[in-house]
Amino acid sequence: MSEKENKVTDLFKIKYPIIQGGMIWHSGWRLASAVSNNGGLGLIGAGSMYPDILRENIQKCKAATDKPFGVNVPMLYPNLDEVIQIILEEGVKIIFTSAGNPKTYTETLQKEGLKVAHVVSSTKFAMKCEDAGVDAIVAEGFEAGGHNGRDETTTFCLIPNVKKHISKPLIAAGGIALGSQMKAAMILGADGVQIGSRFAATLEASSHESWKNKIISLNEGDTHLTLKELAPVRMVKNKFFHDLEKLYDTGRNVEALKETLGRARSKRGMFEGDLEEGELEIGQVSALIKEIISVEEVFQNLLKEYREVKSFDL
């Protein structure tokens, strides 16, 4: 693709409008710094880190790259004020927030010189982000892995609708792993893309090797969006998933769902490699990911595919 600046590259001072999703248990300093060093925007995933671990990852990322990087902060997690304080103390300049009210921290963070992007799954919430004054909006389709929206709106439907209602830089997320998909998202109105699943299956991702190998074995239909009663999440249909689904046979009992979820199920699956009893979060696009490669190779493939996409006259 052209290195000409657009809204996203100009905002974050990066070479390519490619943002790496701040995925829990995947997005440590190695992945974030590698993405930034290759011209994108790397994000450290604070959602799976205790505050001291987050600080360590920020410091190591600063040592590993002189390029811009940021931190992804799901606002539903505990220790939120402490996490924000660490981000400020360590001089991070970019933050992506999700799963909460964008008004909560946006003004405070911007006064400290940070650029703030917020992740949404609907046009309604994108408009609320615009009203809250965020610097960029990530519109994430139903295809995405991990925590997701309840409306099940696909990226192809979401992006053009959001584009009609906002003026801020728009970043498309959900179902993007190929350069052709990136170009399609930008044709629909996105200024850039956020990619998660493709970066989950890289050498630099901090997730367990067994989980990475599981990702590249997945096919269409191997993931499903569930747990709408709590916080919708797309996960692999393994034993843990089916144990959850059995609870629906006796009704939608929220307390039973919480008890089955227990604690640290996602860590058990994606970080420790328990492919049966752990929670395995990944997007539908995993069916297109068939090899574990380096971040550098991901960028090479994305850019090559993007440039090779042909347009056809009717």
Rank of each mutant, 00 (worst) to 15 (best):
A173I: 03
G174E: 05
I176E: 02
A177Q: 03
L178C: 11
L178W: 00
L178T: 14
G179A: 02
M182I: 06
M182Y: 05
K183W: 00
K183T: 02
A185G: 08
M186V: 13
M186R: 05
M186H: 07
M186I: 13
I187D: 08
G189W: 05
G189T: 12
A190E: 08
G192F: 02
G192A: 09
I195N: 00
S197V: 02
S197M: 04
S197W: 06
F199V: 02
F199L: 14
A200P: 03
A201P: 13
A201M: 13
L203K: 15
A205F: 10
A205C: 13
A205Y: 00
S206A: 15
W211P: 00
K212D: 05
K212G: 06
N213A: 12
N213Q: 15
N213E: 15
N213M: 13
K214T: 13
K214F: 11
I215M: 13
I216L: 06
I216T: 11
S217L: 04
L218G: 10
L218N: 00
E220N: 14
E220C: 11
G221K: 01
D222E: 03
D222Q: 03
T223I: 10
T223C: 04
H224Q: 14
L225I: 15
L225Y: 06
L225H: 09
T226Q: 07
E229R: 10
A231Y: 07
P232D: 00
P232R: 04
P232N: 03
P232T: 04
V233F: 10
R234F: 05
R234G: 10
M235W: 07
M235A: 12
K237R: 13
N238P: 02
K239P: 12
K239Q: 14
F240W: 01
H242W: 15
H242L: 14
L244D: 08
L244H: 04
E245I: 04
L247A: 06
L247F: 01
L247E: 03
